[in-house]
Simulated assay, not measured.
Amino acid sequence: MIEPGLSAFAAVVLAGGRATRLGGADKASIEIDGRTLLEHALDAVIDAGEVVVVGEQVPTDRPVTFVVEEPRFGGPAAGLLTGRGMLLRRFPTIAVLAVDMPHLTSATFRRLHEAAIGHDGAALTDADGRRQLALVVETARLDAVSPDLEGRHGLAIHTLLAPLDLVGVPALGPEARDIDSWSDLRDARSEQPDPRAGTDAFEG
């Protein structure tokens, strides 16, 4: 159970998908507003004490660790657990996000951490209440439900997290939008984040 006052956290950025609807393009290197999706993702977890990016290494001046998920192309759950295993230090909580969600901000993860107090974690939800790949989870609880290496392959992330008490946090503006297709990319390039989701507007 996440307790009040816990501010130190690690982050795992999931960037290892096949991007089949984008012709196999490297999502992490796609640019929006002159910056790559990876740079947008790293900005969203700027407060993290340590960051692991699960995917092929791409140029960045940020102090992050790159790792390829094991098993290869095993899905988001395998990526999350591989990233967790690469952390050099132990943190009370881990922030998890997909690299293709450019409207996430550091305030998004502060809202998630605030909502998670008294629970095992919190996940961003879209307008229909569906959980998105933007969440925070208590490290000890994630470790408790983690399967062995063989059990990770093809494991759905909602199945991995099903035993945990994750509270839903409604997205503000386009926070929950991801980039799965070229039309998604076009739309994302024309959208502006909801100003309430910005750092200055966070109400903790």
Rank of each mutant, 00 (worst) to 15 (best):
Met1Lys: 01
Ala10Val: 09
Leu14Gln: 14
Ala15Ile: 15
Gly16Met: 12
Gly16Cys: 14
Arg18Cys: 01
Arg21Asn: 02
Gly23Met: 01
Ala25Leu: 03
Asp26Met: 06
Glu31His: 08
Arg35Gln: 15
Thr36Ala: 06
Asp43Gly: 03
Ile46Lys: 00
Gly49Asp: 14
Glu50Trp: 12
Val52Trp: 13
Val53Ile: 14
Val54Gly: 09
Gly55Ser: 12
Glu56Leu: 12
Gln57Tyr: 06
Thr60Gly: 13
Arg62Ser: 13
Arg62Pro: 10
Pro63Leu: 13
Pro63Lys: 01
Val64Cys: 11
Thr65Ile: 12
Val67Ala: 15
Glu69Gln: 15
Pro71Cys: 10
Arg72Ile: 02
Phe73Ser: 06
Gly74Val: 06
Gly75Asp: 06
Pro76Asp: 15
Pro76Lys: 11
Gly79Ala: 12
Leu80Cys: 07
Leu80Ser: 05
Thr82Gln: 02
Gly83Asp: 03
Gly85Lys: 00
Gly85Leu: 04
Phe91Gln: 10
Ala95Glu: 08
Ala95Lys: 09
Asp100Arg: 03
Asp100Trp: 10
Met101Gln: 13
Pro102Tyr: 11
His103Gln: 03
Thr105Phe: 10
Thr108Cys: 07
Thr108Arg: 07
Arg110Ala: 06
Arg110Pro: 08
Arg111Glu: 03
Leu112Lys: 08
His113Ser: 13
His113Cys: 04
Glu114Val: 06
Ile117Leu: 08
Asp120Ser: 14
Ala122Asp: 11
Thr125Gln: 03
Thr125Ser: 05
Thr125His: 05
Thr125Phe: 09
Asp126Gly: 10
Ala127Gly: 09
Asp128His: 13
Asp128Gln: 07
Gly129Asn: 00
Ala134Trp: 02
Leu135Lys: 02
Val137Tyr: 04
Ala140His: 06
Leu142Trp: 08
Ala144Pro: 00
Leu149Lys: 02
Gly151His: 08
Gly154Lys: 07
Ile157Gly: 09
His158Trp: 14
Leu160Pro: 02
Pro163Ser: 11
Leu164Gly: 04
Asp165Val: 12
Leu166Ala: 10
Gly168Ala: 15
Gly168Leu: 13
Val169Ile: 05
Leu172Phe: 01
Leu172Thr: 00
Pro174Lys: 03
Ala176Cys: 11
Asp180Gly: 15
Asp187Leu: 11
Ala188Ser: 15
Ala188Gln: 11
Arg189Val: 01
Glu191Asn: 00
Glu191Ala: 15
Pro195Thr: 07
Pro195His: 02
Arg196Ser: 08
Arg196Ala: 13
Asp200Glu: 02
Phe202Ala: 01
Gly204Ala: 05
